[in-house]
Design a protein around this nucleic acid. Structure first.
Lengths: 269, 269
DNA sequence: CAGGTCTTTATGTCAGTACAAAGTCTTGAC
DNA sequence: GTCAAGACTTTGTACTGACATAAAGACCTG
């Protein structure tokens, strides 16, 4: 990060560099006005990466907003917007009369609607998927209720087995209203469901989850390679897109011996 | 802009009422400039309660920001700030060229750092607590690592049994750095731990959770009134306050037959 | 020396304006 | 009749300016 020159194409690049560390002073912050990326977002990303890379250590002050704005050639509201987005993410804390400082705790990521696939991939587990079943059925009462459709309507059901290192981790049963997207088996094996939805123009918005546990019956035990009666982690999830329409219902079973949910959450004040 | 005259003097509430429903038009929105409560917050609260009470049904447009601002005698940024806070909560969705509408799905609450006590109480379960143990100990390696303190430092450990309708639901082991707050047994029975912390001036900020499952051993089975080998839901949580200091580590065990985690989560875009 | 008070500093709130960009809808041409 | 261009609506981004308020420290005073 040190001596890297900031190449600027057009607009008026404001680059700020200094030797002081532990503060925003020692950072090479700059914005590119010719870019279509919003200025507040450019700044937010730079601050975020500075925090991640340790250039801005925990507890270090960010420097007051007015000065920061001046140094970057931005207005205060723009700087505030950038900072606010990081405060919302839990990376920064504002204190009136004191300043804005980097939070001490190692907040990684708040809980997201991440797919199991992405989770495992991020953990370097190299997940693979085996599609066991993929067909159109009529919705049962349970599925219809979860998806908010009428019982008997057509849904696409697919069952998948997720593995890492050749070992089963989870058995996933997913239901998608028919016609919402075309689910090719080959693509389901190579990527996650949510990624496919995003590519199909569906923007996920929220989800309702229930996490519980139960003992494995003979069927489940065999599929997952666990002894009968072993504790299983269960999760049911209904996902909604931004129009409020339910786009997916999943009923998942995880081997508790090989998987657990791990997440960070923020308190809203 | 309709024919509604906006009377603007100073320090007086602006009230807007109309007969149209399904929109913000039929709402009695007003702000009180003499109140110390921020204007954007007043507006946000009113909109939120209107949504909750059904006055603003799912899908209904909010009306454009400029007009809304004019009707209330506020500036557009202020109105935007109010709306934005509800968008962040997942109650509203903005669409360029269309407007802002109430989200369809019944988003209840995103996942919060709620205590089990509050959860059960909200569900009308009338929880009771039996404090089994409450003493100061030296931190084990596991606890020290979770709390970020040195091994052997003093921590206050207390074990509680949570019951509803006389039936055990969970066994809770909690560790709090010694001297952080005084944990009276009687208060621990009548209220939750997080409520006590808030009252002691500690503002919670974030937490790291791990949820898993395992089979009950003989000890756990007896305590919770389950057969040996029954599936249990486990949760470990470390909570941090806004200075980044770990203030609590809890290792909890739930009867999977009587409890499951149930929550809503949002996708950040 | 202890206490409260004033000053400083930083964020918090709010107004008003301007232009950009993305959808929607209408209009017009073919 | 269909499709595309353009107008229009609405949110998105950004700036300037102003005052309020909380926290911290310096200062003065009893």
């Amino acid at each position: 990060m040190t001596g890297v020159p900031v190449i600027q194409t057009d607009g008026y690049p404001h680059s700020v560099t200094s030797a002081t560390t532990g503060s925003t002073q020692g950072l090479d912050l700059s914005v590119d006005r010719s870019s279509p990326v919003p200025l507040y977002y450019q700044l937010a990303r730079q601050l975020e990466s500075a925090i991640e890379h340790g250039a801005l250590g925990p507890g270090s002050l960010l420097g007051n907003e007015i000065e920061l704005a001046g140094r970057l050639g931005l207005s205060r509201p723009t700087v505030r917007q950038a900072i606010q987005s990081l405060v919302d993410k839990g990376l920064l804390v504002r204190r009136r009369g004191v300043g804005t400082q980097v939070v001490h705790s190692q907040v990684k990521r708040p809980l997201e609607l991440s797919s199991l696939y992405d989770d495992l991939e991020a953990a370097g587990q190299r997940p693979t998927t085996r599609v066991l079943l993929s067909e159109v059925r009529t919705a049962s009462a349970e599925v219809a209720a979860a998806l908010g459709i009428t019982e008997g309507a057509e849904v696409h059901l697919f069952e998948r087995l997720r593995l890492t290192h050749g070992q089963p981790v989870a058995f996933l049963s997913n239901y998608v209203p028919a016609g919402l997207l075309d689910l090719g088996t080959e693509r389901l094996e190579s990527t996650g469901l949510y990624r496919m939805m995003r590519n199909a123009g569906i923007t996920l918005h929220s989800a309702h989850q229930t996490v519980g546990a139960r003992n494995a019956n003979a069927d489940e035990a065999e599929r997952l390679g666990e002894p009968e009666g072993a504790a299983l982690l269960t999760m049911q999830r209904t996902a909604y897109d931004d129009t409020g329409r339910a786009v997916e219902y999943g009923s998942h079973i995880y081997r508790a011996s090989r998987y657990s949910f791990d997440f960070q959450l923020l308190v809203r004040n």
